[in-house]
């Protein structure tokens, strides 16, 4: 089976936050929950980089390791999902995740955490595919319809890639090779180079 992964190409991401908006809209996430976010380093400074982050769907997910009720599971597609009927909202996955993917509905100070919510790779949850119950708890299930996550599908610069890890890495590898050639060709680092490959390479 395929192994689903996200990849965000920081050389392409323009911090338009459309992926964040698309995700919120597609999945009707609760207020205060952001399954996806765009992080910008050195905003406004030359060398600025942006990156869209959500759940990475780790192969050996630390959230699943620490969960005291063992509510996480990995689908055949390699998507890390969790069962909200079992989740007790303890927040341990939030501590264990290096990327800050697990989210909790914001309920003011002294609040009890509600059930955890995170990116599902638009693959829903353990409920029946595309059922109302599934949509209410986890948002849309595009994967079962043969579609990829909406954030990546509508990314205008195709910075955010989603899909089978092999395909994603092939696409990215091709990009890197072209960039490397551009660097060699111009003798400068990519940061200062033109975003296009040189004319010599274009023909090939």
């Amino acid at each position: 089976m395929a192994r689903m992964k996200f990849y965000c190409d920081a050389e392409r991401c323009i911090e338009c936050n459309a992926c964040v908006t698309a995700c919120k809209n597609e999945n009707e996430v609760p207020w205060g929950v952001n399954r996806r976010r765009v992080v910008t380093i050195n905003d406004g400074v030359p060398g600025e980089r942006s990156l869209s982050v959500a759940c990475m769907h780790c192969s050996d997910a630390p959230c699943a390791t620490v969960c005291p009720v063992d509510c996480f599971y990995t689908t055949d597609d390699g998507v890390v999902l969790h069962d909200k009927d079992i989740c007790i909202g303890c927040g341990y996955c939030f501590y264990a995740c290096p990327f800050g993917a697990p989210q909790f509905p914001d309920d003011g100070a002294f609040a009890s955490r509600g059930k955890m919510d995170k990116c599902t790779f638009c693959a829903g949850g353990p409920e029946e595919d595309n059922s109302a119950d599934e949509y209410q708890k986890y948002g849309s299930n595009r994967l079962s319809e043969g579609k990829l996550p909406l954030c990546a599908e509508m990314c205008s610069t195709k910075a955010l890639l989603a899909g089978d890890a092999n395909v994603v890495s092939d696409i990215y590898r091709e990009r890197v090779i072209k960039r490397g050639a551009s660097v060699l060709n111009k003798g400068v680092s990519y940061q200062n180079a033109s975003l296009r490959a040189s004319a010599v390479l274009k023909d090939k």
Partner: peptide
């Protein structure tokens, strides 16, 4: 009451 007041 707000949740925190309920708890207290």
């Amino acid at each position: 009451m707000p949740h925190w007041a309920f708890i207290i």
